[in-house]
Amino acid sequence: MPITFQKLTHEYNAGTPFSYLALDHIDLNLQEGKITAIIGETGSGKSTLVQHLNALLLPTEGSLKILDREISASEKPKHLKSLRKHVGLVFQFPEYQLFEETIAKDIAFGPKNFGASEEEALQRAKDVITLVGLDESYLERSPFELSGGQKRRVAIAGILAMDPDILVLDEPAAGLDPQGAKEMMELFVRLHTEFHKTIFIVTHDMEHVLRYCDEVVVMDHGHVKTTCSVSSFFQDPSILKEMGIHPPAVVSLRESLREVGFEIDASILTMEQLAQAVAKEVGHHE
């Protein structure tokens, strides 16, 4: 069942001199069972959009259908907690939400809030800690002793322990080193392929969009500029240029080569294919 936004509008501080229209009559269909990237400049409404998915923000106009729920501006929604269990939202820099004495307790915090018993919650903690690439010996340690990257894994484990169907991540790789970022993104791919989670990732990193995502939603000044598959998105560099998005290396190299007269197909999206195309052309003249 798709997630449907219908004329959804969100205005911060509506009715005050500080009001700000963050989302302006959004119509959008998001498919379940995919990894979808949500991109756009800072302030384009990405974060506001994803915070509607678990009803942290409620529409000021229009409505949203997600799972078996409908949230609309016209009626006050009830039992938001049940929605939040099924839609796990990981904020930017989630390491700042850790607070418990031990990692086990911190991971168990979410499940317990959603009604799991102490034992169940701790069992969940055991299950997810290895999933995020740490071993069980970490469970009894304090989260504050860890490195930045490890803290982030624990924070994400805290959301995974709730066993959500949909996982929403706001810039999960920000501030990590290239290796840490790669491992983080591979974790989401694994959650998608092995555990069939629907995943939404807000990101600025086009290399990640190209390598790990299926679909892309482009936000621009509170509107949805375009939604399409990742492969078709990177075929047409004009929209990237128009929006000032720095393309992935392979796309910018492909375009530079096309500019200097190489006849390279615009659908090429890997270094390997690109090298083949160049070899063919260079070889032609031999």
Binding site: P178, Q179, A249, V250, L253, E272, A275, Q276, A279, G283
Partner: peptide, 20 residues
């Protein structure tokens, strides 16, 4: 050392595989 390698170098390696 879990560091990145330059994209230019990645491409050059691919070209070598193609005999260029």
């Amino acid at each position: 050392l879990s560091l990145d390698i330059p994209n230019a170098l990645k491409f050059q390696k691919e070209l070598w595989k193609q005999g260029v």
